[in-house]
Amino acid sequence: MKTAFWLYFFMFLAFFDLHAQYPILTPFALSLGAAPTFIGWMMGIYALTHLPGNLIAGQGVDRHGSKGYMIFSLLTAGIILLMQAHVTEPWQLLVLRSISGFVLAFLSPACLALLASLSRNAVQQGKLMAGHGVMHTLASVVSPAAGAFLVAQSGFTLTFQLLGWLLISTGIIAIFTIKEPARTNAGSSKAKLAPSAQVPLKIKVIPLRYYLLPLVVSCSQGILFFELPLQAGGTAGIMHTGLYFSIISLGALVTLSMLFLNKYSPYKRASFGILGIALSFFALASLDFIALPVALFVLGMSKGIVFPAMASLFIDLSGGKRLGTVFSLQSIAMSLGSFIGPIAAGALHGKHSPYFLAFFLLMLATLIMPPKKRGNLIPPALGTGAGPSKAQ
Results as ranks from 00 to 15, higher is better:
L74E: 12
L114I: 01
I203R: 04
G385V: 03
L81C: 09
A191R: 14
A4K: 10
Q221M: 15
I305K: 00
W91V: 10
F272C: 01
K268N: 15
V61A: 12
L162N: 03
W165D: 05
I24G: 00
D288S: 14
H86T: 14
I305F: 02
V199D: 14
M369G: 06
D17Y: 00
S312G: 07
A347C: 04
I71F: 09
V205S: 08
A110M: 09
S318T: 01
L250T: 13
P308N: 03
P27S: 12
P195F: 15
I175L: 09
T184S: 12
I178Q: 08
T157S: 14
M83T: 08
S188L: 14
T157E: 14
V95E: 05
G101D: 13
F16A: 10
Y267K: 05
R183L: 06
S312A: 14
T184W: 10
P308M: 09
V95I: 15
L228Y: 06
T235F: 12
F12H: 11
G131P: 11
P90E: 07
Q21H: 13
L362Y: 05
K204G: 11
G171T: 02
A14L: 06
A197R: 04
K202D: 14
T235Q: 15
Y46E: 02
G304P: 07
M239A: 13
G78N: 12
S188A: 14
P370H: 01
G78F: 14
R120I: 08
T325H: 05
P354M: 07
N121R: 05
V134H: 03
M334I: 12
L55Q: 04
P342C: 00
K373T: 08
G78W: 15
Q21N: 13
T3K: 07
K127V: 11
G58S: 08
H19T: 02
I340F: 15
A148Y: 08
L94T: 02
L357I: 10
A285R: 05
L158C: 07
P52D: 00
A14G: 11
D62A: 11
R183E: 02
A182E: 15
A105K: 07
H240A: 13
F314P: 10
T255F: 02
L243Q: 13
I178N: 08
L377Q: 11
Q124T: 15
G237Q: 01
P371I: 01
I223F: 10
M42P: 00
W165G: 10
C219R: 02
N121K: 06
V151R: 00
R120A: 12
Q124A: 15
A358T: 01
N262Y: 01
M301K: 03
A252H: 07
L162S: 06
A365M: 10
Y267Q: 11
F226S: 06
F359Y: 09
M135N: 05
L279P: 02
L13Y: 09
S271V: 15
F314H: 12
